[in-house]
Design a protein around this nucleic acid. Structure first.
Length: 250
DNA sequence: TCGAATAACTAAG
DNA sequence: TCTTAGTTATTCG
């Protein structure tokens, strides 16, 4: 009873791995959810912005128009739940803290997400999340077996500088980051330009992640650049971010 | 242009 | 992937 069905266009190839376009794409894929009568319709002409620096390789577009992004966000708020208790904590320098946001992972059976002395098992895919995953796969040509969802209730919630843990991820596979709700600044900082031991001066790259947008973080960005979502105390609204990944199956 | 608010950065734990 | 505190830089009315 897969409520969300991805309907492919008849003339479209199924071999999504061969379809690594980054320029404008004209076809409109439609995903529909019959019981709620919700249709996921992506923007027809995707205007990809290519963000390039030394060893930084990202593509950005607004995938869902406002109306559809609004509906997806509403559905997230209606049906997602988040980790609590020990699964919502992180250990740093021996001290446990609550993470300053809400978080949950969904993915293929057996996968888990590890960070700072914590391991969070993936919950099963829901039809809603599978449908979003499949739309992104169709538009980008990459498959994903895991999604980490972070909910930032307002501008106080944030995430510190980090790189995504390489040993859990299939090397070289991009991460797809879907943003919903409050626009937030997203910063990339080069590893050689961090902290007081910085060996080089490299400008921080700031990207505004808008409602309905998709940021593709491609190899080798995550090897060389740290990323963060800094506090923006004047912002009052919720942002939900989904990062679709390909994890190593152990 | 000032001054307050707040963001950025550093250090330590 | 944290917090807090102290300092400096930036933003904004």
């Amino acid at each position: 009873m897969d409520k969300f069905v991805v309907r492919k266009r008849k003339n479209e190839s199924d071999s999504s791995q061969n379809n690594k376009k980054t320029k404008s794409q004209s076809s409109a894929e439609i995903t529909e959810q019959k019981s709620l009568n919700v249709i996921f319709l992506v923007n027809e002409q995707l205007e990809w912005r290519e963000i390039r620096r030394e060893n930084l390789n990202c593509d950005y577009c607004v995938l869902f128009g406002k109306k559809n992004a609004d509906r997806i966000l509403e559905e997230c708020e209606r049906c997602l739940s988040y980790n609590e208790g020990q699964l919502a904590k992180v250990q740093i320098y021996g001290k446990w803290h609550d993470i300053p946001r809400k978080q949950v992972a969904h993915g293929d059976e057996g996968l888990a997400y590890s960070f700072s002395n914590n391991t969070v098992p993936a919950r099963p895919w829901t039809p809603f999340l599978s449908a979003i995953r499949d739309v992104i796969s169709q538009k980008t040509g990459y498959n994903f077996n895991f999604v980490l969802i972070n909910r930032y209730k307002d501008g106080q919630d944030h995430m510190g500088e980090h790189r995504d843990d390489e040993k859990d991820l299939v090397f070289g596979h991009p991460i797809a980051s879907l943003s919903l709700g409050q626009s937030r600044d997203f910063l990339f900082k080069h590893a050689d330009a961090r902290g007081k031991n910085a060996t080089r001066s490299i400008e921080t790259v700031k990207i505004l992640l808008e409602h309905g947008s998709l940021l593709m973080m491609k190899h080798p960005t995550n090897v060389f650049w740290y990323h963060s979502l800094p506090q923006r105390k004047r912002l009052m609204n919720v942002r939900i971010n989904m990062t679709f990944r390909m994890m190593v199956v152990k």
